[in-house]
Amino acid sequence: MHNFLVNASIQLLPLTTDRHPYEWVDEAIDIIRLSGIRHDIGPFATVLEGTYAEVMKVIGDVNEHLCNRGCPEWITSLQIQIRSAGDMTADEKTDKYR
């Protein structure tokens, strides 16, 4: 894959009763924050921006963390927008609304 910027949204849905689902989501957000990748936390999903490899690594790290911490079950929903000949930025898509 190329090294242009891509956008991705990640939405985590913990399917668990061991603790409140938001606690698992909070841990996932911590992993995203610690990654250093550009991100925007929203009420339903978090938008990531980086190279394809960077974005996929963070998504993998979130899932690996949940597995290692013993989250019983979860759904990770993803949307990824890729442009083959250049960067795809969140600002490009949303600046007109600000």
Rank of each mutant, 00 (worst) to 15 (best):
residue 97 Y to E: 01
residue 50 G to L: 10
residue 10 I to N: 05
residue 43 P to M: 14
residue 7 N to E: 06
residue 68 N to V: 10
residue 53 A to S: 14
residue 86 G to P: 04
residue 25 V to K: 11
residue 27 E to D: 04
residue 56 M to A: 13
residue 82 I to F: 02
residue 83 R to G: 03
residue 71 C to F: 14
residue 54 E to W: 03
residue 96 K to M: 02
residue 32 I to M: 13
residue 24 W to A: 13
residue 25 V to G: 02
residue 86 G to I: 01
residue 86 G to K: 10
residue 17 T to A: 15
residue 1 M to T: 15
residue 17 T to K: 12
residue 70 G to A: 11
residue 95 D to R: 15
residue 73 E to T: 03
residue 15 L to N: 01
residue 35 S to V: 10
residue 3 N to H: 06
residue 71 C to W: 07
residue 95 D to G: 06
residue 25 V to R: 00
residue 83 R to D: 00
residue 3 N to G: 02
residue 30 D to I: 09
residue 89 T to Q: 03
residue 74 W to N: 12
residue 17 T to I: 07
residue 51 T to L: 06
residue 92 E to W: 09
residue 36 G to S: 09
residue 40 D to V: 10
residue 93 K to P: 00
residue 17 T to S: 13
residue 92 E to N: 02
residue 56 M to E: 12
residue 39 H to T: 03
residue 1 M to D: 08
residue 89 T to I: 01
residue 61 D to E: 12
residue 71 C to P: 01
residue 29 I to T: 07
residue 45 A to I: 04
residue 11 Q to L: 11
residue 53 A to N: 13
residue 3 N to V: 00
residue 2 H to I: 01
residue 48 L to C: 12
residue 38 R to P: 03
residue 59 I to P: 14
residue 43 P to V: 12
residue 25 V to P: 01
residue 58 V to I: 15
residue 1 M to G: 15
residue 36 G to V: 07
residue 83 R to P: 01
residue 74 W to P: 00
residue 74 W to S: 07
residue 68 N to R: 14
residue 58 V to F: 10
